[in-house]
Nucleic acid binder design. Sequence first.
DNA 1: TGGATAGGTTAGCGTACGCTAACGCATTTA
DNA 2: TAAATGCGTTAGCGTACGCTAACCTATCCA
Lengths: 104, 104
Amino acid sequence: MADLWEVISDPNRRQLVQLLGQGEKTVTELSVHFPVSRSAISQHLLFLVEVGLIRARKEGRNRYYSLKPEGVSKLQGMFERFWTNELDLLVTEAKEIHHNKGEM
Amino acid sequence: MADLWEVISDPNRRQLVQLLGQGEKTVTELSVHFPVSRSAISQHLLFLVEVGLIRARKEGRNRYYSLKPEGVSKLQGMFERFWTNELDLLVTEAKEIHHNKGEM
DNA sequence: TGGATAGGTTAGCGTACGCTAACGCATTTA
DNA sequence: TAAATGCGTTAGCGTACGCTAACCTATCCA
């Protein structure tokens, strides 16, 4: 079974999510930004539909893809569950180190 | 070249990061939590060292692995760059939808 | 009606990846 | 000193994945 982590493990899929963040887009509109074939993009989009992150709206010859708010929300939840308090503490620690370096 | 996204694309590596969030641990201590061999865990750890997310401290026969604050910081930065404002807006939108549903 | 355009489908290819098994090297303990 | 323990290294295996090429369907326009 596919999970949301797989979505963001591929660079092209990550970029697709970001592009769709700007609003709904067709496959060819999206394909322009990638070096790979339209077919490859189409397959990525179908995968994103499958995991519930985006949806497709048909209008004439075009298919407009857009992000599903619930899907994006799930994605965020996934990140938040992963990012434990311990990790957050280490980040502030890193900032302090960097800050001290800057002062020396 | 390996990047930090690859780190979190594997379930076992994600769990390793979280376990190391609790403090430094040896390979065998970590291996206990996984169904795979110690060798597999060792290879994951070497990868995490390679990308600069963790470091190893040798003490006798043991090797204590721990998170590098700068590495964790980079990981956070990576997430933050990915998570655009547009995506954030969609999340609040999702919450409103869910809220309305609850009221109906 | 015929071509052009948008997009889904499928087979197949190359390759990267996670894992195990087996071994080697230190270090500790009996 | 011999056995045991902790860990890294390597070869090789199976498989999943991203991609292309080729084809098909549906819709639009001349």
